[in-house]
Write a protein that binds this DNA or RNA. Structure first.
Length: 399
DNA sequence: GTCAATTCACATGAAAGAGACCACGGTCTAGTG
DNA sequence: CTAGACCGTGGTCTCTTTCATGTGAATTGACGA
């Protein structure tokens, strides 16, 4: 027991972190760097709501990790702080990408109702019933304005169709005592092209684009957070610069940069180093990448795993690119051997497209002339973790 | 040699089914007074 | 008489199939030089 105590005690001394939470992605910083302009813009658009006036709907675009969510939430917090006493304003934030929570029309409404203090069954009701309940509960509330922040709204629209947004904007005409203001946040800059003209004009009355952070800005952000989260002298300037450079390469993703720093810190800590070294960042980068991929692979449904396994096998056999047809035939024989139902080619095609989206493979639709059109598929999983992936696949498939 | 038609092997879309989950309202049953 | 069990109907949601339509360039074959 004593020896264990020692280990436990030594962890405390050895820790490089002062407060690791600050580097976690759900941490909400008190001060947001390099977004003053955008924050002011958002605030100025939403400011009239404090007087109970219906403001324009607002749409915000920007890649992941450009501070959209944080900025909007910051403004929302300040607004509700101001409006706390007089019941004019109610602000709710909802991330439409959360699986099983808010990724369908029904669930978004249900979640909103829940936030407003009502209750709805998880399933079973017709959607229009849920709309009615939503209206009812809105009418009942004392506030005059309801600011609805829909994060990752592109995900929702992709899944549900833009009718949902149309309904949402139309609700205002059915509401007497309360008006809804929609603030949409989207990662996809082409989002507006996806939605109907009618919706577009009524929904995105104001638009705002968040540019990616550049390397210098990322450095500022990292430096600030590092100061708060690490003990002193753990993080050197070089480390920060490297983290920033890494993330800047990936379209200026601040979240990514912070993850990198945190994981590098964890690695350094485990190695009993008192400082983070440049190497640790490379290791962290590998680790993040590896865990992301392994996580996808391990949690994927069986059929997905089978198809992925087929891809692995074929890639190994002939190093060059492979095509949908090859994969399908291999997959078929695999299924027969394992006595598993065979999916149609149509479905497999979709699954391959999913893999492309997830970044496991790189699929390009090419035409081989008389040999038809197909996807040319290349694996983007780095060689050094390919074996790990394969063994974990074999394991979970029970081969 | 040139040019348009053809043809391949899928991609891509739309719709609809299967099966799991669930709410709601009506009916039946057993327990209670 | 009534609370609770039970059942049928009709929802949502995910994964999948079925049917239909689309598509880019190698190939073909007719044509003219």
């Amino acid at each position: 027991m004593n020896s264990l105590d020692k280990i436990f005690d030594s962890v405390k001394d050895r820790s490089l972190f002062k407060n690791k939470q600050i580097l976690q992605s759900n941490y909400f910083p008190g001060e947001i760097l390099h977004r003053e302009k955008q924050i002011k813009h958002i605030a100025s658009i939403l400011a009239p709501s404090l007087l109970g006036e219906k403001t324009s709907n607002l749409f915000i675009y920007g890649k992941t990790g450009t501070g959209k969510t944080v900025s909007v939430q910051h403004v929302a917090n300040e607004l509700s702080k101001r409006a706390k006493d007089n019941k004019i304003l109610r602000i709710e934030y909802l991330n439409c990408k959360l699986k099983k929570v808010a990724d369908t029309e029904y669930r978004i409404l249900a979640e909103l109702i829940r936030k407003l203090g009502g209750s709805v069954p998880a399933t079973g009701l017709p959607t229009d019933q849920v709309y009615l309940r939503f209206l009812e509960i809105l009418e009942k509330s004392e506030e005059k304005l309801f600011i609805l922040i829909l994060d990752e709204i592109d995900q929702a629209v992709k899944k549900i169709s833009d009718e949902f947004l149309y309904n949402l904007t139309r609700l205002n005409s059915e509401l007497n005592d309360i008006q809804i203001i929609v603030v949409g946040i989207s990662n996809d800059l082409r989002f507006l092209d996806m939605i109907d003209q009618r919706v577009r004009s009524s929904l995105s009355e104001e638009e705002l684009i968040f540019p990616p952070y550049n390397a210098l800005q990322l450095q500022d952000i990292l430096r600030k957070r590092a100061n708060e989260s690490f003990k002193s002298k753990v993080v050197s300037e070089g480390v920060i610069a490297k983290c920033a450079a890494f993330a800047a390469r990936e379209h200026g993703d601040a979240r990514r940069a912070l993850d990198l720093l945190r994981v590098a810190g964890e690695i350094a800590e485990r190695e009993a180093n008192s400082k983070i070294k440049i190497d640790h960042i490379d290791m962290a980068n590998d680790k993040i990448e590896r865990e992301k991929i392994l996580d996808i692979i391990e949690t994927a449904p069986k059929q997905f795993q089978l198809i992925l396994f087929s891809i692995f096998a074929l890639i190994k056999k002939n190093k060059q690119s492979i095509f949908t047809g090859d994969i399908y035939t291999y997959y078929q024989s695999l299924c027969k051997k394992a006595k598993i139902d065979v999916l149609t080619q149509r479905r497999v095609s979709d699954i391959l497209a999913d893999f492309d989206m997830l970044g496991l493979i790189n699929a390009r639709v090419i035409s081989k002339g008389r040999m038809g059109r197909t996807r040319e598929i290349r694996l983007v999983i780095p060689d050094n973790i390919l074996d790990r992936c394969q063994t974990s696949l074999i394991e979970s498939l029970g081969f």
